[in-house]
């Protein structure tokens, strides 16, 4: 009983064209409850990360050797690690690194890549041709390997350097996405009309193009943050991110793997924190993308 017949089968397409008068009622697009739950979760993470030092949490660095490798309890919600540190506090503080790297790198990536992409798509010509070729060459270079390479040589590592390296590595990708999105809009009649009427570049870029590509930008930004957070996690797992004892989700998982058999809680909580965070970001990004009906953008 399987079939190829989707509602928009070729015949119905033909039908819609044949009966061009058939009005398709505008589908009321709703973001849905799940979307708002995800937004709430991300919000909670951000609040936890920002106010971690004010919140009634235990000291994430305090080692209590009389309470090591404890399971979850009322006193230690997520239990303790092999040095007796409170996992709940460490997971909350760990969000700081992920969120700082995620947003910081994307601020750099968008700060450089987005204006260049918009300008190239708006100006076209030689400026666009040269810049695009350069970006495509850089894009062919595997960014993850470049990041690992630079971070392993550029010692001592710090949060700022990590943000900088990942941020710069993301520029070509942001450039490509924004340039494509801008090109789609820039060739529309109303932009051409604005150009013909002699609107200034600045005006066209800020008032006409920016609002139109903003939806693409925002959904890509969220998915980009998720990608960077994953990357930071992998770097931390390899010991190439912030140095212990500063907690990050990635280095917590890395530390926990040595006592995996003894204390599985240790790996489960930071893993779950990271996965839920990524899932929510991806979901929000994906939902926004389909909400704004963007199909061009692929990460």
């Amino acid at each position: 009983m399987s079939s190829f017949g989707s509602p928009s089968d070729s015949l119905e397409q033909a039908l819609i064209e044949e009966y061009s008068i058939v009005e398709r009622p505008e589908k009321k697009k709703k973001l849905g409850l799940l979307f708002w739950i995800c937004v709430g979760w991300i919000g909670l993470n951000v609040i936890g990360a920002v106010f971690a030092s004010v919140l009634p949490l235990q000291n994430p660095l305090y080692e209590n050797f009389s309470a090591i490798n404890l399971g979850p309890s009322l006193h230690h919600l997520f239990g303790t690690d092999d040095l007796g540190r409170d996992i709940f506090a460490r997971v909350t503080y760990g969000a700081r690194v992920s969120i700082a790297v995620g947003t910081g790198a994307m601020v750099i990536g968008f700060g450089i890549g987005a204006p260049l992409g918009m300008l190239a798509a708006h100006r076209r010509g030689r400026f666009d041709a040269i810049l695009t070729t350069v970006m495509y060459v850089l894009l062919a270079f595997p960014a993850i390997i470049a990041t690992i390479a630079v971070l392993s040589f550029w010692t001592p590592r710090s949060l700022l350097k990590i943000i900088l390296v990942i941020g710069i590595a993301s520029v070509p990708l942001v450039y490509r996405v924004i340039r494509t999105a801008t090109l789609n809009v820039a060739t529309k009649d109303y932009i051409i009309a604005a150009k013909v009427q002699g609107a200034t570049d600045r005006r066209i870029l800020m008032k006409e193009l920016l609002p139109n590509i903003a939806p693409v930008g925002i959904s890509f930004l969220l998915i980009g943050v998720a990608t960077v957070v994953t990357l930071e996690g992998a770097l931390a797992f390899l010991g190439l991110s912030v140095n212990p004892p500063t907690p990050s989700w990635g280095n917590m998982i890395n530390e926990a793997r040595t006592v995996l058999a003894m204390n599985p809680w240790l790996v489960l909580f930071p893993s779950a924190a990271l996965c839920f965070f990524l899932l929510c970001l991806n979901f929000i990004g994906d939902r926004l993308r389909s909400h704004f009906d963007v199909t061009e953008v692929k990460l």
């Binding site: 079939s3 190829f4 017949g5 509602p7 089968d9 070729s10 015949l11 119905e12 039908l15 044949e18």
Partner: peptide, 14 residues
């Protein structure tokens, strides 16, 4: 067009 495809049974199945 729909008629010719229906006669052949080639209409979409849903």
């Amino acid at each position: 067009t729909v008629l010719s495809r229906t006669i052949m049974g080639l209409q979409p199945r849903t």
